[in-house]
Design a binder for these strands. Sequence first.
DNA 1: GTAACCACTGATACCGGTATCATTACTTGT
DNA 2: ACAAGTAATGATACCGGTATCAGTGGTTAC
Lengths: 354, 354
Amino acid sequence: MSGKKNSLTVADVAREAKVSKATAARVLGEYGIASEGARKAVLEAAERLGYQPNDLARSMSTGRSGLVGVIVGDIENAFFSQAVRGISDTLRAAGLNLIISNSSEQLSEEIEMVSVLLRQRVAGLIVAPTDARHVDHLKAALAAGTPVVTLDRHAPQLGADAVCGEDRQSVGRVLRRLQEEGHRHVAYVTAMKTRDGKLGRLEEIGISAVRERISGFLTQMREAGVEDPADLVFVGATGDDETTAVVTRILKRSPTITAILASDSLICARVFRELSDRGLTLPQDMTLVSWFDADWSRVTTPRISVVDQPTYQFGQKAAERLIARLKGDASPPRVYVIPTPLLERGTIGPAKTE
Amino acid sequence: MSGKKNSLTVADVAREAKVSKATAARVLGEYGIASEGARKAVLEAAERLGYQPNDLARSMSTGRSGLVGVIVGDIENAFFSQAVRGISDTLRAAGLNLIISNSSEQLSEEIEMVSVLLRQRVAGLIVAPTDARHVDHLKAALAAGTPVVTLDRHAPQLGADAVCGEDRQSVGRVLRRLQEEGHRHVAYVTAMKTRDGKLGRLEEIGISAVRERISGFLTQMREAGVEDPADLVFVGATGDDETTAVVTRILKRSPTITAILASDSLICARVFRELSDRGLTLPQDMTLVSWFDADWSRVTTPRISVVDQPTYQFGQKAAERLIARLKGDASPPRVYVIPTPLLERGTIGPAKTE
DNA sequence: GTAACCACTGATACCGGTATCATTACTTGT
DNA sequence: ACAAGTAATGATACCGGTATCAGTGGTTAC
């Protein structure tokens, strides 16, 4: 079939340069010492033959592998693809490459991916863990000496560096701002799926960022004197139709509910469209705030107010931490929090009073 | 430093199972034959010890490598990240993984990336080549037995499979539709950089998709009797400020110019925002059509008419072709054209007549 | 003059798998 | 009963690098 027979080896180069394999390997691998003459002869021979080193073989014998595994929920989502760009740029600068995997936010797939990456003997792992309660596979990687950094999420019992946004604080910040405008009943819309379509126990939420935000939401709402804030958390906004249904349910409770928080840019886009389709004007008829500053947030009318999650920076920081660990940094694991400020644009207005 | 000492080998498992290394390798590697008893003993020993195969070593000795290299212009761009998702899903189903690289649309980086990936002995390459005239590095990969598929772009002299959209036809289709509406002077806005900020010779455009579209644009415009269509191609819309400048230049030539074609969704977003900032109403004051159906195209008012480039499918098809080649398909290279229909929404209107 | 040191080199074991081949122990056929 | 075939196994070479170690020849030190 694919007869890949032509690959040249150091031995071939050595023969051509009339030196030993060991000497050729030293100059090609840039280790040890070699005389100026030998070096020139080998380099010229390599050039003449068109020698291409084999990194597979190199990592085999050194044990180190220039490859870092990255597992995200969905690269198609700008949130992650931007983070991946940050990771990629940073790793590349350190001479590392990345293998990308999609977990589709499913634990079983994540476990499978980790196994595949470990088989490839990646130097390290950057993961957005799907479930903070099930991280044994990551813990095993860590124990086996493969550093792990979690992205956007934190799993305390894992004992790995984490790079996160200010999930809890940002939701508090937004709510306080809305409360200033007189909003009392604010809906929080998230893609999270639950068995019965209702918000269950907080400890059962696997994605830490989601849990933190909802937890912060409930706390802040209770502090503001809202009796049953769990009723204001709308889960299951996974697709177009589901989000439409959620908006319908929210509007049925209008004018009580005067503001909507969208947990990501996809949800926000769908909510925004639903609202305008129904003839509502923002922010007069409804206040809307989203997480993640998608590239289109400033093209709508009015422009959308967002909690800016600079995921490129998330990625950068995660890659930096991983590189540090690879270089031997053995300090205790830390959580690195990236500021996620509220960017006020045109969709925050005073609460509509009936 | 990173003492990675614990890795178990087939030899360890063999010892534990009291069989030879060869037998253990046969059952763990699922090749050759082994008795039921031996199989059970080895599997149990592997389980007990927690053995994890080393794919590096495996690829070393087999020569095959389960990894496919992907080089795109920018993963951060939804156009590519969607394609990557298609590639990823398809490859995964065939038991392959992918290494992602960003060329930032720079030939030098692309060449470097190809070299890195080849060193990793990837099984194949999926590339969006930055310059169709400089593909020697890809040709070399092909010659060395590593199959290559180009994505979204075609380099005839490369002799590799290509997966493309209907670049030339789609621009003709759009223009004919606009001409029906009475538009004669249509602007085409692209991110392409040129030395002097003006459109040079077509043969000097490296990205084939860009060249095809502009070429199609010029042809169709000439057919419609527009005297100097090159004046209507606006290049260099690379960032926010640059695009603003382009819009300014276009509007200066209004009301002559009655419609704008944006070559990608980033440009479209910026053009759209610029137009609404200046108080223009679409489609009454200006017609706008973009390439790529970004997720936000349907949240604006009015919704944006787009040439739908289903890049997930681009990716799928490219991965399928690569897999076929890997399986030994030696048929002559082909160009696979994915339909890119015009989705008419709200931004196409009759030409404003003065 | 020779011991000690130095730069440089080559032979070879090794990384952890796969693949080949020879060997052993059983069947099976006639 | 004996040749031939077959299933199962173990020993070992091999993939293409790196790393170790034992020389070799030349220079400096006393």
